[in-house]
Amino acid sequence: MKVNYRRCISCRCINHKDKFWRIVKVYLSQTVQLDKGMGRSVYLCPKKACLAVASQKNRLERGLKTSIPQNIYKKLWERLENESI
Rank of each mutant, 00 (worst) to 15 (best):
N71R: 04
A49E: 13
S41E: 14
K17P: 00
E78R: 14
S41Q: 05
K48G: 04
K74M: 08
K25I: 04
F20V: 04
V24P: 05
T66H: 11
Y73R: 03
Y5N: 01
C8V: 13
N15C: 06
R40L: 03
V3D: 08
R12G: 05
I23D: 11
I68P: 06
N82R: 02
L64N: 07
D18S: 12
V3L: 09
P46Y: 03
F20C: 09
C8K: 03
R7Q: 10
Y43T: 11
G63A: 15
Y5V: 12
K47C: 03
Y73T: 04
C45T: 12
C8W: 02
S67T: 03
S41G: 06
K75I: 05
A52Q: 13
N4K: 03
I14V: 13
S29A: 00
A54M: 05
T66A: 08
A54C: 02
V3G: 00
E83F: 02
C8H: 02
N58S: 12
V42F: 03
G63Y: 09
S41T: 15
Y27F: 02
S10L: 04
A54T: 13
C11L: 12
K65M: 11
Q33V: 06
L34P: 07
I14A: 06
C11W: 10
V32N: 11
Q30E: 10
I14E: 14
L64E: 08
K57I: 07
L44I: 05
K47M: 14
L60T: 10
N82T: 03
L28G: 12
T31A: 10
Q30N: 09
S29W: 06
K19M: 03
L80E: 01
N58Q: 15
S67F: 07
V53C: 15
K65H: 15
L64K: 07
L60P: 09
I85R: 09
N4Q: 10
V24M: 04
C50Y: 10
S41H: 14
I68A: 04
V53Y: 01
K75H: 07
S55D: 09
P69R: 02
K47P: 00
Q70C: 15
Y27W: 06
I72Q: 05
I9R: 05
I14C: 00
K47F: 02
Q56L: 12
F20W: 03
K74P: 05
I23H: 15
